[in-house]
Each structure stands twice: as structure tokens, then as C-alpha cells.
């Protein structure tokens, strides 16, 4: 049966995914760094929007996050499709 609170599942999935990206781009640290920057920008924008209680439109939408990551992960279809599983509105 599915877990009532599957937060640990999401957490483990995220850990495995970050680890996979780190390994894949071991020789290209700039790509990994850019990926982290996209995530952090997204998180910051989400926080701003939340704090402004609807009076602020995030500059980085889920669609734009996906587009940026797709550009970064070109030729890494498996990483990109797995990333899509994390996005709230992809």
C-alpha cells in the first residue's frame, strides 16, 4: 500500500538524483554548478512569491526551469526526463 506520508520517498529520490548528476558531470563541474544555480534561483523566486502573498510573480516559472535544465542536460535524456518528475507543473 502507498505510504500516507511519502516525504522520505521524495527525499531519497532527490538524493539519488543529485548523486546521479554529480557522477554524470564529474568532469564538467560547471554544468553541475549551473544546475544548482537554477534550482536555487527557482527556490528564491518561489519564496519571494510566497512572502508577497500573490503580489509577486516568480521570474522563473516551472516551464523556464525545465527549459534551462534541458539546455544544460542536452544529450542526457534520462536525466532530463527524471528531472521532469520533480517539477510541480511540467
Amino acid at each position: 500500500p502507498p505510504l500516507q506520508n511519502n516525504q522520505p520517498v521524495e527525499f531519497n529520490h532527490a538524493i539519488n538524483y543529485v548523486n546521479k548528476i554529480k557522477n554524470r558531470f564529474q568532469g564538467q563541474p560547471d554544468i553541475y554548478k549551473s544546475f544548482l544555480e537554477i534550482l536555487h534561483t527557482y527556490q528564491k523566486e518561489q519564496r519571494n512569491a510566497k512572502e508577497a502573498a500573490g503580489n509577486y510573480t516568480p521570474a522563473l516559472t516551472e516551464q523556464e526551469v525545465y527549459t534551462q535544465v534541458a539546455r544544460l542536460f542536452k544529450n542526457q535524456e534520462d536525466l532530463l526526463s527524471e528531472f521532469g518528475q520533480f517539477l510541480p507543473d511540467a
Binding site: Q7, H13, A14, V18, Q43, Q85, P88
Partner: peptide, 27 residues
């Protein structure tokens, strides 16, 4: 074993909160 920096951990945090948000919006 994982060798995660604080930056990696925050990426894990963002990704899992995204997934949580996705689950909430889908259900």
C-alpha cells in the same frame, strides 16, 4: 556512501520540496 556538500544538500532540499509540491497539486 554519499559525499554531499551543503550546496548538494540544499539541491536535495529544493528537489524534494518540488516533488512534494507536485504531489500536492496532483492529488
Amino acid at each position: 556512501s554519499y559525499d554531499f556538500t551543503p550546496l548538494d544538500s540544499s539541491a536535495v532540499y529544493v528537489l524534494s520540496s518540488m516533488a512534494r509540491q507536485r504531489r500536492t497539486s496532483l492529488s
